[in-house]
């Protein structure tokens, strides 16, 4: 389905994840973050850039992998994106829901 986020029409699935990463822009990410009550700081953006890089490399993401990435430790990851950090941060980054789950 289509949704307008920050004035831009983007394709999303029922859970609100972008289905076409090419449509993502930083302002789209900021708007999705606001819906999750998160104000994006430079630290948030470092994590988001890392996630997008891994996505482009087709490298599957997991909480552990992020913890070992050297970008952020798991505690801080939870502080930045409370509750379900991997899912929330993936949604903001415009990448699919992590499918480390088969």
């Amino acid at each position: 389905m289509e949704k307008t986020i920050a004035g831009k029409a983007v394709a999303v699935n029922e859970e609100g994840y972008l289905t076409n990463f090419a449509q993502w822009e930083p302002r789209v990410g900021s708007e999705i973050a606001k819906e999750a009550n998160i104000d994006l700081s430079p630290r948030h953006w470092e994590v988001i850039n890392y996630l997008q890089g891994e996505f482009k490399n087709e490298s599957p993401l997991s909480i552990r992998k992020i913890g070992k990435s050297g970008v952020v430790d798991i505690k801080e990851f939870y502080q930045l994106f409370p509750n379900a950090p991997l899912k929330t941060s993936s949604k903001i980054a415009g990448i699919p829901k992590p499918a480390s789950c088969i």
């Binding site: 997991s62 480390s100 789950c101 088969i102």
Partner: peptide, 8 residues
């Protein structure tokens, strides 16, 4: 604990 696991 975490995914992936054998026989999910």
């Amino acid at each position: 604990t975490e995914m992936p696991i054998k026989c999910p």
